[in-house]
């Protein structure tokens, strides 16, 4: 995605596919290779948030094309097969937007009364 669109609205991507959101989140703090992403997701989000490896690369494939993530060109590893992925500026903004959307949802009147129900 060209940089001229970097300021454009990303809201039309929302809501994100849950798997995409999980992958983006896992890359927020560090660059990871595929297996690292899988492990980060299953540690972070507990057991119910895991991704099938076959699906992981399909999502990555799409996100690479959409320029939400990119491959690390630096040869930090001798093994070429363990290339890591890095969040782009665009990807970071998409993740922000999704997080904001989810927050609005969770803080909505309905969700609050729902959690009140769960407390009682």
């Amino acid at each position: 995605m060209p940089s001229s669109t970097s300021r454009t609205d990303v809201s039309f991507h929302l809501p994100l596919h849950p798997s995409d959101y999980l992958i983006l989140l896992s890359l927020v703090r560090e660059d990871l290779h595929g297996y690292g992403i899988l492990k980060a997701i299953s540690m972070d989000g507990a057991r119910e948030a895991s991704i099938d490896p076959g699906n992981l690369y399909r999502r990555l494939h799409k996100m690479l094309n959409a320029a939400w993530v990119e491959r690390n060109q630096t040869k930090d590893s001798k093994d070429d097969r363990r290339r890591s992925y890095r969040l782009t500026e665009l990807g970071r903004r998409v993740a922000h937007a999704e997080t904001a959307r989810l927050r609005r949802l969770v803080e909505s009147q309905a969700a609050r009364s729902l959690s009140a129900e769960m407390m009682s």
């Binding site: 596919h17 119910e48 959409a66």
Partner: peptide, 28 residues
């Protein structure tokens, strides 16, 4: 499935309605 989406030319991660919530660890 990837072949199918490649055929349909959906390159962008398309927004999907939340009709299928993430289904736990089923897929693993």
């Amino acid at each position: 499935a990837e072949r199918w989406s490649a055929l349909r030319g959906h390159d962008l991660p398309e927004p999907r309605p939340p009709e299928t919530p993430p289904r736990g660890n089923r897929s693993f």
